[in-house]
Amino acid sequence: MKHLTDNEIIESVLRGNKGDYSLLIDRYKDKGFNLLKRILKNEMDAEEALQDSFLKAFNNISSFRKEAQFSTWFYKIVFNTGLSIHASKKRKLEQEMISIDETFDIGEIDLNVYASTENRTEYLLNIVDKLPIRNALVIILFYIDGLSLNEISKVLDISLVNTKVLLHRSRIVLKDLLIKHNYHKEYL
């Protein structure tokens, strides 16, 4: 039972075995939580949004097309739920989401992060959270969730080219920050 594919679990839920939905929850709760925590920057909000996302997915599971990946479909729900909760709290995110072409400057934030972290890894992981939301999400989806750029573009609802630009630009910013703080001279 534990080795069922996502589609097999969905089939079972559609046959009326509601309990099997817990297998999908266990499979995606951590990844969904990571994404939401990056969007909402708050553990309680992220938990609430995660519950909301799973309930939305359950209520709409009959509209899920099996030719698509459940993970991509679910991440899209998670992303949109996170955005709507965030938008209801503040408008800053909307400004961050305006254009893919805008450049960003995290100069002052960078100094704070640099001052409050003890090593290169800690610094880098903290600075990822300070990147504009879409840049941070592309990194999380690519490196933690292992989604392809094509899947990420579907989740974020942007073109594949723009997804790639976001990833590349984020890497370049992080690379330049490491050089700025001479972290690149440390042992690899």
């Binding site: 939580f33 925590k37 880098l124 992981l125």
Partner: peptide, 15 residues
């Protein structure tokens, strides 16, 4: 360094 560090990001467990 960026690539290797990002690959090692630990996943935060859900509550």
């Amino acid at each position: 360094i960026v690539e290797n560090t990002l690959k090692e990001i630990e996943i935060i467990s859900a509550p």
